[in-house]
Write a protein that binds this DNA or RNA. Structure first.
Lengths: 201, 201, 201, 201
DNA sequence: AATGAATGAGTTTTCATTCAT
DNA sequence: TATGAATGAAAACTCATTCAT
């Protein structure tokens, strides 16, 4: 599953590709083996030397921060688009992205003592959700009582299910259904997750 | 928060006290510093030597298993009692115990690759819940549609909130309320958690 | 030149001996190979594992601090003794110890950015020198114009010669003679240095 | 303190400027942070790429050798001039240059194991000093007993003070005064040092 | 000729686990 | 039986040096 063939120096031109390969490898290995996979294993899976990993990311946590940043950007881009049903799209993506990022969330949670960087915050999510949620409530697609913060809470719950039952998408569906049927994404498949994983910047 | 005072050999009489002190220290340190605290730090906080820690627990995961076993026993004892309202008591305890054991759950989840021992399983929880839940449904205290497995799912969700927002009991209350108001425990306080923490065998 | 024979675990009883062996090995290797010898090489020469080195000393600088502390104690003990000629003894020892500690001084100097711990200071030397110097001046053994701080300055100069001409004791003698003939120690031999090296706590 | 502005290829015209910028950056960083600054940091401070640094200097030690060579040339030029008081000028410059080059001296001393190149030697200094010293002695400006080698020894001592008390020019003055008042340079100021630093080739 | 990314070989550092006392 | 030192096997991290562009 190594991305690049040999270990030839492909030169600076490959820098961006390397960065992406590292993030992807991290996602995979963290998911497969848990938060303590050696960084050297991640570098290896990405097909780069350890030095390259350290050039791109200051350390383990930085990998997670970078993934979060990517996610935020994806979501903010979605939220910025207007049109009917954008809440639906945004929410479904949010759930899928949360599931695809379980490993990174765990990492950050495990190192909570270190404190989060400013640009990784619940507020950012709340901001992106506010307008789309209001629209959806106006159109009576979702209960009027919900706040953006409630939705973030639901994502936290989704994460709880994801870590407790790795790979069990049906459990996630049932869990969301317990809160409200309208929260269950239309396409919650392994393929959708895989797409979200590969899409990282 | 008991620490053994000196370091004289206090004989087997101290063994139990040591065991409890170790589990408590582990809970504290895992919560404070995340899953990677050195075992030596746990031993130190517990006021025992590393040798003693190893005498009681085979390793890091064993600490979590032991805590789980304790929890299971507490809950099964509760479930065995009959009488009106026993579901209420059982559920409230389940939530509190889940929150008090966040650190150990994280540990096990992080090492999920290692596989769980047989006596730590969802089934055991389902078994304990089945009868009390049926009673509560008969008395129309909770929706008839719920299954014991659904409740375990809710506990998973609670765990998700707990790790995402450490110490925020209000978030837990709101989250449970989103599922169903009847799921919010009557006494969900730091004091209740502390009691659950100290209660470990 | 390894101090201990094999690599058997000689148990806690050897802890003190290990500490000493590490300091001695550090002195030797730093002198032979400069300030960048791998700590692993020091551990090896001392006949202990790397972990033992780290148990005794937080890192490279700690080795130097420990050596300084040892030196200070030796000197303060000498300064505390009374009797005629104690300045002579103290000064000669000071020069020898400075030369025997060249490697550690270089280390600390190289890492000056890190700042010194409080208990490693010029003042401590000045304090130890004050009374003995006063006596020597009363007895007209040394020029009345000198201050303890001047003597420390002379030690700094000795260090300059030591690093610039490693092993050249004659250069040290000539240098001290340029300042004042009375500053040249009576016994400034490789044997005296070796004794000072081995004497570290 | 010159930095190349952009990063366009400015052609061979920039080569000299780069060389100087690198040496200056090395002086600064070695002084600030000790002998272990990464070469990449030096290149960065100099405003050039690592490749350029390597084009000019084979490695870390080469930086020091180059600085020494520069110093030697300056001094030999001074020594070649005749006229009354040339010893004075030469000596004062020697002291200033020694202080301005502390960082490089430390570097070479730390790597003493590697051995010096032939053209960096005490003899070269002795040669430059011989005639001027003889004149000064004939004019009774300095004690007749001194040899050129003694003066080199005094420079070694100056270096010892410089590393032990970074930036403390007064200590240097006092130290030289302890040897002989005539050795204290007339202008021993930070400005004079700065001039010597910038003067490199 | 300049840039700065990539390599890869150290070095440092950390712990789980063992074991002498 | 308890203690805490020692081991040793990872893992993290750092840079000098090379090299594609």
């Amino acid at each position: 599953m190594s991305r690049t063939s040999g270990r030839a120096n492909r030169g600076p031109a490959a820098a961006d590709e390397n960065r992406r390969a590292i993030l992807l490898a991290a996602r995979e290995l963290l998911t497969e083996q848990g938060g303590r996979v050696p960084l050297s294993a991640i570098a290896q899976r990405a097909g780069v030397s350890q030095g390259v990993l350290y050039r791109h990311f200051r350390g383990r946590l930085d990998l997670a921060y970078a993934a979060f940043e990517d996610n935020f950007r994806t979501l903010e881009a979605l939220a910025a688009q207007v049109g009917p049903g954008r809440f639906r799209v945004l929410w479904d993506t949010l759930v899928v992205v949360t599931l695809a990022s379980t490993a990174f969330i765990e990492l950050v949670v495990a190192e909570r003592a270190s404190g989060l960087p400013d640009d990784i915050s619940v507020e950012r999510l709340v901001d992106a959700l506010t307008a789309p949620l209001r629209e959806a409530q106006r159109d009576e697609e979702v209960p009027a009582s919900w706040t953006p913060a409630d939705l973030v809470l639901v994502l936290n719950m989704v994460h709880g299910v994801a870590v407790s039952r790795p790979g069990d998408l049906d459990a996630v569906r049932r869990a969301l259904g317990l809160v409200d049927p309208s929260l269950v994404p239309a396409d919650l498949s392994e393929a959708a997750l895989q797409a979200a994983r590969t899409a990282s910047t």
